Amino acid sequence: MDISVVIPLLNEEESLQELHDWIAKVMQSNRFIYEIIFIDDGSTDTSWQVIEQLSKDNSSVKGIRFQKNYGKSQALDAGFEKAQGNVIITMDADLQDNPEEIPELYELIFTDKFDLISGWKKKRYDNVYTKNIPSKIFNAIARKTSGLHLHDFNCGLKAYKKEVVKAIKVSGEMHRYIPILAKNEGFTKIDEKVVQHQARKYGETKFGMNRFINGYLDLITISFLSKFGKRPMHFFGLWGTIVFIFGFSAAIYIGISKLYKVYNGIKTILVTDNPWFYIALTSMILGTLLFLAGFIGELIIKSKNDEKHYKIKEQLNF
């Protein structure tokens, strides 16, 4: 199979038929062997009924229906697991991504051998203050911290080599950082392509300003996990040891100082009246806790299983 188009959605009943027809037209005109995987992330409208009808009319349409709304990352993860195409294309269901971009994205992956191509909505039709400006700030921070020079990390239109989507695990709200996840797994041929962005035709956006706050927090998380996610002891154990040694050294100093003064008949205060006693005690306790956190983290990693953080209610054409 040439292409899998993975489309997560939430309450997009009005756009699905038009999006399907547009994608099918592009695929047929380019003679691609394809599949379209719609992932219904707990829609409360008739989106699933529309997908059911599309799957009956076109055997290339496949559907996954979640038990409830789990989030875009979980929807993408489910789609990635099922995708069979040599090239995987992701796009949003709101008709703001243009299917006419698919052939060129396919060529960049299949012919030019890129691992991942991220779309760049250079000209946007979103609200300037609630989406455009915050997005520019967010992307600048992501570039600085990740070392990936992409202009639009959050663009839903991306193309992947099959091996990439099978190697990464997308959970929480990490869909914004799939290029970073891919880079952390050793896929380094990552680039971007300017893509056409279109104004939303139906409905309203499902994302508010809180997504940027969550995005910054997720960026901190992924930056930490990229360095220490597989060996937490390297972080917690190191700092735990440093803090413990500081506290232990302070305790030794207090003890020696006390013995010296007693031996020479110098009047001294009680050890518990010395503020350094509490600094030393607190440091040793914190150091021990940090070290244990690293040790427990190692045990969790060794024993964890790959549980799915979503429940599939129905599937079509799989």
Rank of each mutant, 00 (worst) to 15 (best):
I269T: 02
A167F: 01
Y260R: 14
F212N: 04
F153I: 05
S249Q: 00
Y125P: 12
M27A: 07
F248C: 13
L281Q: 07
I39A: 01
F291A: 11
E18G: 03
R31V: 11
F295K: 03
D40F: 09
K193V: 03
G119L: 05
L219P: 03
G186K: 14
L299E: 15
A75K: 13
I37L: 04
D2W: 10
N86Q: 15
L259C: 03
S43C: 10
S283N: 03
I64C: 04
K193Q: 05
P275G: 02
V61A: 02
N184Q: 08
I269K: 00
I266K: 05
G85C: 10
Y216L: 15
A83V: 08
W239E: 09
K189F: 06
V164Y: 07
L259A: 05
L157H: 09
L281K: 07
M174Y: 01
Y310V: 02
K121F: 05
D45M: 13
K158E: 10
P99Q: 13
V6A: 06
I178T: 01
V128S: 05
P8S: 04
Q53V: 06
Y160P: 02
E185L: 00
L299C: 15
M27S: 06
Y177C: 04
S47V: 11
I33L: 10
I301A: 04
C155G: 01
I312K: 13
N154G: 03
Q96W: 07
D306Q: 08
K123D: 08
R31W: 08
D112W: 08
Y34T: 11
R211E: 10
D191A: 04
P103S: 12
G265W: 00
N139F: 12
I88F: 00
T188A: 11
K68M: 09
Y177H: 06
Y160W: 00
G172N: 01
V170G: 00
K123A: 08
L259D: 06
G172Q: 02
I245V: 06
P103Q: 13
L217C: 09
R231D: 14
R65S: 01
G287A: 07
A280D: 13
K82A: 06
P232G: 12
G294L: 08
L299M: 15
V262A: 13
D21M: 06
W22V: 02
P134H: 01
Y278F: 08
Y253F: 14
V164I: 09
T46C: 10
E163G: 02
K68P: 07
E101H: 13
P179R: 04
W239D: 13
I242P: 13
N305C: 09
V170T: 03
R211M: 05
E307N: 02
M233H: 08
S257L: 12
L10G: 00
K166S: 01
R211G: 02
L316Q: 11
I89F: 15
E307D: 01
Q49E: 15
E35G: 10
F38W: 06
H309F: 14
